[in-house]
Amino acid sequence: MTQLGETTFYELHKGMQKENMDFLYKGQLNTAVVDALLGILKRKVQDLGVEYILAKRIYNIAVECLENMCQHGDTEVEVDSIFLIGNEKGTFYVATGNLVSDDTVGKLTGLLGKINDVDREGLKELYRDRLSDTSEGLSNNAGMGLIDIALKANGKIEYRFNDHPKGKQFFSMQVIINMAG
């Protein structure tokens, strides 16, 4: 183990402050961890000093993001996931990164393409279709979480896949929460 450098950790902390990172988690994700994180986040968003509806939307998006990561994430290979809430001059964003299987890449690309392709009314329609669709049982809520994220953020979902040395794809996603309009 290397020795604690004189400024290393302090620089990391300063960097995080400078980038306005409000909440950052890096580690394994499972339902127990998600529950713990959301327990902390529920209080954290209230301490951000932002208006009620923004705090609620940040929490809402966080729930759907973390649940999605648990659902789509590849847990066979132990690679840490990452989850971040930050802001740039008061405009909040939520970003996630996790390993996914090749099958999931196709599904996510199709779904995210569809979500980013429609306007707000189109998104509401997509959501409503899935809400009332019971054809494959109620547990088939494919994509509802992602559609909800786009609706609550009132914007597009940026995403990217990168090759990962473990042979899978690393999926990064970010939404900026747009409160105007």
Partner: peptide, 10 residues
């Protein structure tokens, strides 16, 4: 107080 998307359907 809060309802997630999968509960919405139920």
């Amino acid at each position: 107080d809060y309802i997630n998307s999968s509960s919405n359907k139920f």
